[in-house]
Amino acid sequence: MQLGISKSILKKKKESALIMRKQTKLVAVLSTAALLAIGASMTSFAAQGWAAEDGTWVYYNRDGEMATES
């Protein structure tokens, strides 16, 4: 009788560990996808802002053109 109870407990522990590993993998995949999406969106903002050119700092507006007299 004892042997049957311990086998069922062992089986439940194995199932629980398998579920936990699947959940961990899912979280890892979703986190990686989110970080890649954020990284990709950051490169789209690279055209605007301050940049050093020929020893001077210039500002590029949202259109990617250098802002002058503004």
Rank of each mutant, 00 (worst) to 15 (best):
A28Q: 10
Q23R: 09
E69T: 14
R62W: 11
I19C: 12
Y60G: 00
W50D: 08
L26E: 10
A33S: 07
V27H: 06
A47D: 06
T24H: 07
T43H: 01
A17K: 12
S44H: 03
K25S: 05
A46N: 08
V58M: 03
I19T: 13
A17D: 12
N61V: 07
A51T: 05
A46G: 05
L26S: 07
R62F: 08
L3N: 14
R21I: 04
S8F: 09
L3W: 12
Y59L: 11
T43F: 01
Q2Y: 11
M42D: 02
A46W: 06
T68W: 06
V29D: 12
M1N: 12
T56R: 07
A28G: 05
V58R: 04
K14H: 11
Y60A: 00
K25P: 00
G4K: 11
D63S: 11
A40T: 03
K11D: 03
T43N: 01
A17Q: 13
I9K: 15
T24E: 13
I19K: 15
W57K: 10
S41R: 00
S16C: 13
R21T: 08
W57N: 10
M1D: 13
T68V: 14
S16A: 14
L30N: 11
V58S: 06
L30G: 03
M42C: 09
T32Y: 01
K22G: 06
A52Q: 07
L36K: 01
G49A: 01
A17F: 07
I38V: 10
I19Q: 14
K25M: 02
I38D: 10
A34E: 09
V27L: 07
M42W: 08
Y59D: 06
Y59T: 05
K7S: 14
Q48W: 02
T68C: 03
L30E: 15
F45T: 00
L3Q: 15
K22C: 05
M66K: 15
M20E: 14
Q48I: 02
E15N: 13
L35T: 03
Q23T: 10
I5H: 09
E69K: 15
T56F: 06
S41L: 02
A28D: 12
